[in-house]
Amino acid sequence: MKPVVHALIRKRAEIVGRIQAIHAEAARLVTDLDHLDCTLRIFDPAIDFDDMPVKALPPPNAAFRGEFQRSLLEMLRGSQRWQTTDELTVKVMVQRRMNENDLAMRVTIRKRVGHALSRLRRKRVVASRKAGSGALLTWKLTKPDAALEGGWRNGSG
């Protein structure tokens, strides 16, 4: 078979695996909800579940203040070699369960990674140098014991 066909078959298998995992998670959540509803009915047999509010979930890739930079620091702590912005971008995307083959998303995340690393460089926590003749940078931790401050998005503790 041709390499393209093999790649498409692998991609299809990945998508089917994701769908199966989501179905399994949905089945588990339905069972949990059923158990919770039964427990609520013990305390209030006349409860009306249709009138209950539904809590909106935060976006799956939301990060609290400083979380993104702390995540990058951990990635840099785990390696003694210089790492490119692209390598760190892929690690972030894998960590957040994003499709690292989605080029538009990869560009967006690479920009976020670059900005976060630039902020860390200004704090003298990381150092950068050019990787070859292009614009690609490599990064290395300069203060392994660096800890960042930060709480929720609004800055409160």
Rank of each mutant, 00 (worst) to 15 (best):
V4W: 09
G114D: 02
G150M: 02
R97T: 14
A21T: 15
V16M: 08
L137M: 09
V125E: 05
G114S: 12
M105R: 14
L40S: 03
I109E: 13
G66S: 07
L33D: 03
I42K: 14
K91T: 11
P59Q: 03
L73E: 00
A131Q: 06
E100Y: 15
H6G: 02
I15L: 01
V92R: 13
I19T: 01
V125C: 12
T108A: 13
R124P: 06
T39D: 06
T108L: 11
I9Q: 10
V4E: 10
T138F: 10
I15R: 04
C38N: 15
M105A: 03
D86T: 07
D102L: 01
D32W: 13
G151W: 04
R70K: 11
G151K: 04
K143H: 14
R129N: 07
V4K: 09
A46E: 08
R28I: 00
S79T: 11
N101R: 14
G134I: 11
D50K: 09
R106K: 03
T84A: 12
V4S: 14
L57F: 15
A131N: 15
G134R: 02
T138L: 07
V30S: 05
R81N: 14
G114Y: 03
L103G: 14
D44H: 04
W152G: 06
L120E: 02
L141T: 01
A63F: 08
G114A: 09
A131H: 14
I22H: 08
V125G: 12
P3T: 07
L136Y: 12
A13D: 15
R112L: 10
D145E: 00
P3L: 08
W152F: 09
G132P: 02
P3Q: 04
D51A: 06
D145R: 01
W139M: 04
G151P: 05
G114N: 10
L136E: 15
F64Y: 09
D48Y: 01
L72H: 06
N101E: 13
L88N: 03
A116F: 05
P58W: 03
V107H: 06
E67Y: 04
K143G: 08
K2V: 14
F64L: 15
W82M: 01
P144Q: 00
L120A: 04
K130W: 15
Q95R: 10
Q20L: 00
I19M: 03
L88P: 00
G132M: 06
S71P: 00
T108Y: 13
K143T: 13
L141H: 05
T85N: 04
N101C: 14
R12Y: 12
Q95W: 12
V125M: 06
I109W: 15
E74T: 15
M98C: 02
E67C: 00
R112I: 00
E14V: 01
S128H: 05
L40T: 03
L141M: 01
R106H: 02
A104I: 14
S156K: 11
T108W: 13
